[in-house]
Design a protein around this nucleic acid. Structure first.
Lengths: 113, 113
DNA sequence: CAGAATGTTGAGTTGAATATCAACACCATT
DNA sequence: AATGGTGTTGATATTCAACTCAACATTCTG
């Protein structure tokens, strides 16, 4: 059910009919690197690179990022730039939330605005 | 009000009456490294090292971590290990929450349990 | 099948984070 | 003034993520 980052990347890239070389050129990396990532011979690239890939492939940044288990610079900043955010995250970490609870929090989020 | 990581470390260490060498030995780093950190000549150490320091000094891990603007491995895992958590964080990132809003979320958190 | 396009693999590179080492300076006590 | 405990500094080392490069293999298309 949870496909690897490489599997996801490979399938989306193929759907779009783009070669590894084309993608790599647009991203600004070597095409052999794309190959290794797609075959899970290397871990997902840096968060910034993941964002570029998502945009070039015309897919959701969030979905690709989520599959990579990486935290983007933006997200990292969103957390560490505010004392209140850090406090919140510490609480969360100590509590060990379930998926359901996370979803409830997302609901609370939407009620905030 | 917002003292640097180095200033905080130095003041707490002195309160406990521990020398840089003693602290460094217990942490497992060179004492000169502690000196540089305390004088802000080097950025805060790795998250794991920060946790060790906090424990040796008998202070809150969270406070020290928060001052360092770093994300601990535990916190990173708490976020990336769940799809729902990642979804929540993406929402948050796109919204750009204020401190007040973060505090409200912390309240929601407490109501969850 | 030929040639071009595309994909794979192993070894090596690079820069940033995270430190170490050696030398020296300061200060208090004996 | 020497010793011992402490702190500072500049140069250097180590580690790891994130790649590149060159060579080869496979697949597609005419």
């Amino acid at each position: 059910m949870n496909q690897s980052f490489g599997q996801l990347l490979k399938s989306v890239r193929r759907e779009k009919g783009i070669s590894q070389r084309d993608l790599a050129d647009q991203v600004g990396v070597d095409f052999s690197y794309i190959s290794k990532i797609e075959n899970d011979r290397m871990p997902p690239p840096a968060a910034d690179t993941i964002l570029k890939i998502a945009n070039i492939l015309g897919m959701s940044e969030d979905i690709l990022l989520a599959n990579s288990k990486k935290i983007s610079t933006d997200m990292s900043n969103a957390i560490t730039s505010s004392q209140s955010a850090i406090k919140f995250m510490n609480e969360v970490r100590h509590m060990g939330l379930s998926d359901t609870e996370w979803d409830q929090l997302t609901q609370s989020l939407k009620k905030l605005r």
